[in-house]
Amino acid sequence: MIPISFNTVSGGYGSLNVVQDLSGEVEAGKVLCVVGRNGVGKSTLLKLLLGYLPCRSGEVTIGGRKAGSMAPEARRGLGISYCPQERPVFDDLSVSDNLALMVKDGRLDGYRRFFDLFPVLEKRLAQRAGTLSGGEKKLLSFTRGLAEHQPAVVLDEPTEGVQWENIQRMAEMINGRKAGGTAFIVVEQNLSFAELIADHYLVMDHGRCVLIGSCAEIGRADIVKHLTV
């Protein structure tokens, strides 16, 4: 079973299609990195996958089931976690409440591994999440998303503002999860991070796919060529 696949999806805001006829899939235990310049429709693609925007054409399949017009809150039940690029955490809640929200009994024991990896989170538990730095918010969002233990995880620019040493730890964590069979779709600007985790690349420009393939087929130079045009 393929955790997430999308077939010729188009969609956008108003009458404009930001994303046009994009297809792709990610297998269990693999990472698909979506790269491209700012404003080419990477985040829009994720919003189509998650159900925040309706697909004008094409079909999204999550966990082997067609998502159709399902709302985001229902798609989660198909087995997908999402860490958005903007407003990634609940600013009004404390860091610990942000994490407790997802745990039935409200205990944070399940986050031990994340606290060991990112001690800064444990230090800030009592703090309001809105007072965290941009990078710390991303770490909190990443932690929340991965701790949900869903078969598919979608990350939108997870390393924005995060310092390199923590970026490496994120990659470690993702690679550990890959071994456990989790599928990832990651939108990423940081190619050094992408190279640490990617199995496949989808390079976008103007809402369309300009290059798709495995990391064996696509080198950094091929990607950079499309990023700098």
Partner: peptide, 14 residues
């Protein structure tokens, strides 16, 4: 409180 502060994220969390 979560829903009020950030409805889109709340939806992502189901």
């Amino acid at each position: 409180r979560a829903m009020v502060g950030n409805p889109d994220l709340a939806r992502a969390l189901g």
